[in-house]
Amino acid sequence: MRLKLMGFCAAMALTAGGAFAEAPVQTYQNLLTPLIAGGTDVVGSPLNYPEGPVNITSAIVTIPAGGETGWHLHEVPLFAHILEGELTVDYGEKGTKVFRAGESVFEAVNWPHNGTNTGTGPVRILAVYMGGGEARNTVTLPKPQ
């Protein structure tokens, strides 16, 4: 029995040694999970940083089931990542897009739009506004006619 146990331990040590030898070297790039990259927003306009001192704001936006953002626009580039739920955004003549949990978007800059929670639970969005100068993160607009 003792001989079998020693043989088993030796086999495990050899197997473990091989596993450790094949483990990838840890680098910063191994830690990244890219979400989105690019230079245009969701409606195809080029992204440009506002003039003036940098003012970056991050927030969690929560919209209840059936709720809306109301018509608005952003004067600054905005990265948004849907953490939970489903959001349908009306971009007027640019169409409607649906964003679901796990998706990311560079939101439209200087283009009116309205988001509606079309899911069954709350929508939670990580929003990062890449602002600067006098540009406003969000400007409330009247509902289009």
Rank of each mutant, 00 (worst) to 15 (best):
N30W: 00
V54Q: 13
P46W: 07
K94F: 11
G67E: 07
G38K: 04
N48T: 14
G66Y: 07
P64L: 04
G52A: 08
P24R: 12
V42Q: 08
T27V: 13
N30V: 00
Y91S: 06
L78Q: 13
G70Q: 10
E103N: 05
E86T: 15
P34W: 05
W71T: 02
G38A: 08
T96N: 03
L73K: 10
L87H: 01
E22P: 01
G66K: 10
G52E: 09
I82V: 15
G7P: 01
A59P: 00
G102P: 06
T15S: 12
Q29A: 15
G92R: 06
Q29P: 00
A80E: 10
A10E: 06
G67S: 06
C9V: 15
G70C: 09
E86I: 10
L14N: 02
P53W: 00
V89F: 04
R100E: 14
A13C: 12
L14M: 13
E51F: 01
P24Y: 10
D90V: 07
T69H: 03
N55H: 11
A59H: 02
P46V: 07
L31K: 08
V25I: 12
E75L: 05
A11L: 15
H72R: 08
V76N: 05
E86N: 01
L47E: 03
G17C: 08
Y49T: 04
N48H: 14
V98R: 12
V76P: 03
L73D: 03
M12I: 15
G18K: 11
N55D: 14
A13S: 12
T15Q: 05
E84N: 12
T40R: 14
W71K: 03
V76H: 04
E68W: 00
F8V: 11
S45K: 15
G52L: 07
D41Q: 05
V98C: 04
P53T: 11
T15F: 13
G102E: 09
T62W: 02
F8A: 14
E22Q: 14
Q26M: 14
G17V: 07
L32H: 02
N48G: 05
Y91A: 05
F79R: 08
D41G: 08
T57E: 07
W71N: 02
I63H: 03
G85F: 10
Q26E: 10
L47R: 02
G17T: 08
A23T: 11
Y91G: 09
A101E: 11
S58W: 09
I36P: 01
G67H: 07
F79H: 10
T40E: 13
S45T: 06
V54F: 02
A13Q: 04
V42Y: 00
F20N: 04
L32G: 01
W71H: 02
L14R: 03
